[in-house]
Design a protein around this nucleic acid. Structure first.
Lengths: 325, 325
DNA sequence: CGGGCTTACTTACACGTGTAAGTAAGCCCG
DNA sequence: CGGGCTTACTTACACGTGTAAGTAAGCCCG
């Protein structure tokens, strides 16, 4: 099976349809500069299908000098569900244009000599990492292809923080707290988020919100939150970095017997599928990336042609009100 | 910038080091059949680094006829956290051997003419889908490369089901219930899991467990579980397809005021990061894929060379006891 | 009725690799 | 001292594409 199976090339199709390889290529690529009678066209297409011909991508890329592959670089340990959904939508759009989206998730080996993605040849890179990080920048540059910013940049994070504060203070005055995760990989986003929270506090004439770093284990989270809240005046309004942090905060509060949302109101971010099943059900928000998707796709197409790109308008934020705030 | 930047090829390195392109290739690929003096070797390597030369992968693939790319095909709408972790580990191993792991997540477009992954050229495919599904099989075969089964096959699912039942019945007699998700993409795994649960029931001399399909929204889940449980004798032992289903079940039970684990014991699968933060904390299990990782990597390497592959031993199952069962 | 134009192709090249086959110089050894 | 062997390379080819340039036949039109 390994010896016998030869790759089917355009030469095979050419031979089968009694024309040259060039004609096959012109037909299958629909070259408008050639005049090829319908009869020949049909014959070539039929033979190509009969033989199950599929052009060999590496040869195509070699010839063209660039690929139709888009590499999304996600320098996080894991990809948040909201982002995963956005990538899925992006992929669907790109497919329509004949492009393939590949994701690289991970941050550890960015500086390694032999990188995990060394074998892929993207035509465009979409970067979701910290744009100001020189390590990431130099890693991306070695691909020698255009680099575009992805959709969850720092500006968007800031908007979330401000919106969370606005919502928590809508009905009553509360001590705002920012709950941050321990994980290091998203700290550049955490910082941007905090900036938004602080901006919200300042606009409401409040002192800057203190930061509560949520421990990764449940017992630790419980003792930490008890310790932390004794130094703050109740009622509390807790802005969580994302829904996962919010789950940890909710569990810690419940373990401590603190009533939600009366004494402590909790708001998350992302609206992960599990968000509706927390106790109590989580109030959260998510980005509607729909309207920023088209411009991003446009930019990717433009960049792959070597054309300049435009500014992508920010996604709009949707609030999901449930029981936790 | 687009015009000016030329690709750096081995010709450039050859010219800079005053040798032929062949010599450059022999040096950089460490061809043991050539005798090249250390001096020349050093010079070539130095020039290659100075110029920032990186071999152009498509040309390599074209020459070799096959790539070092491993494509993991995951025919699910989303990838479970446990599986994501396993893939991350697999990637790390493959990198050591110079291979690149690419994942394709998604099931909708499998049958589409122009497939999302049309632009990538894997050397080996690792399939996590239903091995008996002809649509998946024909899709995979068109890549014309060896296909290996991934790590979450039906046999492993069955083991989970049986282990869940064993645990739930360890201390007291309970009415076993199987909680399945609505999502269609994992039904082949759901069925395998159910088979394991039923096997467990039969071994304990019980009637076959009824199946509770958990609705996707919290209010619907609540009414559905009330309706469902009135026809069953308590106490219940609920085997959940995964931790996400378990979260929905826990919320529905709490909304109904049913005590956990006294009246209803709940056990999940995957041990997702959030599992410890459910109310009450979720008892669950996960696969320790560590010892099946090496054989899988071995198989991938063998398959890419066209050699036969061996049977991969099943991963071992680890129980995480918390408060829900 | 012949020169130019259209039609319907084909021939030839280049993209960047890896490697088999060739080669020139130097050395060894009977 | 010359034939064979080693060293240190180079020359040449093939992988499968896409497309510019070439070409032969047919047609039109002054």
């Amino acid at each position: 099976m390994e010896k016998g199976q030869q790759r089917i090339t355009s030469s095979d199709v050419a031979q089968a349809s009694g024309v040259s390889r060039a004609t096959v290529s012109y037909v299958l690529n629909n070259d408008p500069r050639q005049s090829i009678p319908e009869e020949t066209r049909k014959r070539v297409i039929r033979e190509a299908e009969k033989l199950g011909y599929r052009p060999f991508t590496p040869a195509r890329i070699l010839r063209a000098g660039h690929s139709q592959i888009v590499l999304a670089v996600l320098p996080f340990e894991q990809v948040d569900p909201g982002l995963a959904l956005g990538l899925k939508e992006l992929e669907a759009r790109l497919v329509e244009h004949g492009f393939t989206l590949i994701s690289y998730v991970g941050v550890q080996q960015l500086a390694t000599k032999i990188h995990p993605s060394a074998n892929v040849t993207p035509g465009v890179i979409v970067s979701y990492g910290d744009e100001t990080d020189p390590a990431i920048a130099s890693f991306l540059q070695q691909f020698q292809v255009p680099i575009l910013p992805g959709m969850n940049n720092q500006g968007m994070q800031q908007l979330v923080g401000k919106t969370q504060v606005d919502y928590l203070l809508r009905h009553s005055q509360r001590q705002i707290v920012f709950a941050a995760p321990e994980r290091q990989d998203v700290q550049f986003l955490v910082q941007a988020r905090l900036k938004g929270v602080l901006q919200g506090c300042s606009e409401h004439g409040l002192e800057p919100a203190p930061v509560f770093v949520v421990p990764a284990s449940r017992p630790a989270a419980r003792t930490a939150i008890r310790e932390f809240l004794t130094h703050q005046p109740s009622p509390y309004g807790i802005c969580c970095y994302n829904d996962e942090v919010a789950f940890a905060v909710l569990a810690a509060l419940i373990d401590e017997g603190i009533s939600i949302p009366a004494t402590a109101a909790v708001i998350g971010c992302d609206d992960i599928p599990l968000a509706q099943f927390s106790i109590p059900a989580l109030t959260t928000m998510y980005f509607d990336r729909q309207q920023s998707l088209d411009p991003l796709v446009e930019n990717i197409m433009a960049a792959s042609r070597g054309e300049p790109t435009r500014q992508v308008p920010p996604a709009s934020l949707k609030l999901i009100v449930r029981d936790s705030a």
